[in-house]
């Protein structure tokens, strides 16, 4: 009896959480011209159409580039910071931790607006660079946190052992620390990539004419057109995220880092 109730509750919760994706996948597979569920016949024409829309292609490339390079930059800044916060008795370590973690606490729309008004406009930064800076700042807290927690489990005396065996400090880091936090770094990359790729509020004010991230582009398209192509694109993006997470989980048990 209890068993039955358990699965009942879980079933309803999962339908609420996952059901909308099933609906959107099917709505995108409609043969008709309008967004509807159940779909008016099945076809893949809207899925195909998504790839022919020029602005989607451009914004997809931009979002990809921002997610990849923003996350890499965040890791380049974040790994040394995580290392220093773990291994050194730093003056003001708490302050540094708070500063680096802060972009996670403040609503993205505010970050975007503040950047636009006080950095991008006065310094005449191009839209692409502005987006790049914003996405890096956004991902940095995740990079530091995830790398930090995987470094936390790594004993400091392992590096000392490496040095006594002849390593320079740098070699001790690349030969001993890095191989052992590889999982954490990869997890941070994936988490950062997904966060950046899906990000809307930060990019809202920073996107300019012709330079839009994919989610912003989708919002704009939605306001004008009411056909199933957004549903199809949403479904494709969901599949992309699922694929990334699935591969990551298989490779390194991703979920323990989230």
């Amino acid at each position: 009896m209890r068993h039955f109730a358990n699965w009942g509750i879980l079933g309803l919760t999962l339908i609420f959480l996952i059901g909308p994706f099933v609906i959107i996948i099917l709505a995108g597979a409609s043969a008709g011209p309008n967004l509807a569920f159940p779909p008016e016949g099945l076809s893949l024409k809207w899925y195909a159409k998504v790839f022919t829309i020029e602005s989607f292609r451009a914004s997809f490339v931009l979002s990809m580039a921002l997610a990849v390079f923003g996350t890499i930059t965040a890791l380049v800044l974040g790994i040394p910071a995580a290392y220093a916060l773990n291994r050194y008795d730093l003056p003001g370590a708490e302050t540094i931790r708070t500063i680096v973690a802060a972009p996670i606490i403040v609503p993205g729309i505010i970050v975007g607006l503040a950047l636009l008004r006080y950095v991008v406009v006065p310094m005449n930064v191009t839209v692409t660079v502005a987006l790049f800076m914003a996405h890096t700042a956004l991902v940095l807290p995740y990079a530091v946190r995830v790398v930090s927690s995987s470094m936390h489990n790594l004993r400091a005396d392992m590096e000392e052992a490496a040095v006594l065996l002849g390593c320079s400090r740098m070699q001790a880091f690349t030969k001993v620390v890095l191989p052992n936090i590889r999982g954490g770094v990869l997890a941070a990359f994936i988490l950062g990539f997904v966060t950046s790729f899906n990000q809307v509020p930060v990019s809202l004010f920073l996107s300019g004419p012709g330079v839009r991230t994919l989610p912003i582009d989708m919002l704009a398209y939605m306001e004008i057109t009411f056909d199933p192509s957004i549903a199809a694109l949403s479904a494709l993006l969901a599949f992309m995220s699922l694929a990334i997470v699935f591969v990551a989980e298989r490779l390194l048990g991703f979920s323990r880092y989230v």
Binding site: L164, K175, N180
Partner: peptide
Amino acid sequence: ANKRGIGLVFQSYALFPHLNAFENVAFG
């Protein structure tokens, strides 16, 4: 420390978890 030619066996052993026994010993 890496130029002194001194060995240290740590209390925690400080073995390298990503390397097998052979590679741990061959590390230096």
